[in-house]
Design a protein around this nucleic acid. Structure first.
Length: 116
RNA sequence: CGAGUAAGCCAUACGGCAGCGGGCAUCGGUUGAAACCGGUGAAUGAGGAAAGUCCGAGCAUCGAAGAGCAGGGUAGCUGCUAACGGCAGCCGAGGGCGACCUUAGGGAAAGUGCAACAGAAAAUUACCGCCUCCGGCUCUGCCGAAGGUAAGGAUGAAAAGGCGAGGCAAGAGCUCACCGAGGGGCGGGAGACCGCUCCGUCGUGUAAACCCUACCCGAUGCAACACCGAUUGGUUCGGUAUGCUUUUAACGUCUGCUCGGCGGGCAUACCGUUGAAGGUGGCUGGAGCUGCGCGGCGACGCACAGCGUAGAUAGAUUGCCGUACACGACAAAACUCGGCUUAUCGGCUUAGUCGCAAA
RNA sequence: GAGCCAUUAGCUCAGUCGGCAGAGCAUUUGACUUUUAAUCAAAGGGUCUGGAGUUCGAAUCUCCAAUGGCUCA
């Protein structure tokens, strides 16, 4: 991934759940906050509710594939966490494209607001 | 053809484009060199249960060696195995017409406890009944007292070996035949055990109640453990110095207890070491897999040849298509193996059995 | 990775060294009241998480599983 680091600090995760902007779509929800860095940080959450280990891994894979495809649309300098839901492991990654486009639009709009 | 039994195998397949993990080769950047960063190439990358964590081991650390008790586990025999609570074969018991299957299967005569309700009595039993003798009375009988008895009675899961005959006042293993349990002897077997024979002791069940017997078990787990480690701090450990206390003592240490062994102990100061975050190793060549041969009923063992087949650290198999069909279940390595248990779409192979029909 | 605990009526819990499954709240019915609430009286409601085993007999003992929760590093 080009401008992205993997997010693994659990403190950052909880900060995002508490304070982050939330965008939910089909099968998943995303939280994001600006991080004042020259790159993005990206994390995935797939809890026990999603299912067994096979289903959790599949959900993570699908989210990762969708992110990789749509990485260039997203603005740089954000922490992003995507939370998987139960329905996600039945879906295909192309079905997530719409959600990623919506997410990037929303983030860009917020960024313009903040800069103005 | 139908039903059923046992054993074993497979776990969608192939192709295209883009992408992920760790290594290998190579090119470039960079450097004194290594490391590092980027590109390219050809290979390679989850399971039969990877799961549950129910057992067993390897490996590592913890004592300057260890012993006993407590605690825990196992429980027919013989073998296999690194080991096991696993597996194989056999014995006993039980089930099935049969192929075959199931089985925590030592000791109740070392001791203790428990056996509700019902019943006379649940383990040194006499309520009713039956019988004998004595006494009384309203005398073919009834009542009372003393004894004998375990055949009959109702209860219960279970009633003092079972059943038949003899015997007796009535009865009773009191005696006898057969059967069961126990003990002794002889024979067979590696053994569990089996067969025959004699004796005549018959003393319920429960040990997945306490317990007894035999055998086994040190504790902690790869987040173990080893190494590197900036600033800051001074928890840990070691050494030195000083002070206090003291050598049959107290304290510490393998952990619950005791013995034994080892170290004298505590406080302060200094020096070194260590060290939270992070990184590297541990990490995959192993009780390994495949093939073939030999030994063994078998589990398994031996010999030869070939193979190199995940190693991540927020944790790698995906996305978009195409083709085929039976339209794809359960399900993801995390130190590694051997088992057990549980989940599972279906398909295939082999060997017995029973029933029906035909020849 | 290692270890521990719980599951009983609609809900919260007793009963756990074997012998008829119980309490409180809730529900229903009746009484009291003009009516409701409160109070009083009664009734119904259970595959004791599931499956095997030991036993004459299992919520209880043993084994295997399921679900939920907790602890350690």
């Amino acid at each position: 991934m080009l401008y992205t680091e993997i997010l693994k600090d659990s403190g950052v995760f909880s900060r995002l759940y508490k304070n982050g902007c939330r965008a939910s779509g089909c099968g998943c929800a995303a939280y994001y906050l600006p991080n004042r860095r020259p790159y993005n940080r990206f994390g995935i959450t797939a809890g026990k509710k999603v299912g067994c280990a096979v289903k959790r891994n599949r959900a993570k894979r699908i989210i990762r594939a969708a992110y990789r495809k749509n990485e260039l649309l997203l603005p740089i300098g954000y922490d992003i966490v995507i939370v998987a839901r139960q329905e996600l492991c039945e879906m295909k990654s192309t079905e997530l494209d719409g959600f990623m486009k919506k997410l990037s639009k929303e983030m860009n709009r917020n960024r313009e607001k903040a800069s103005h």
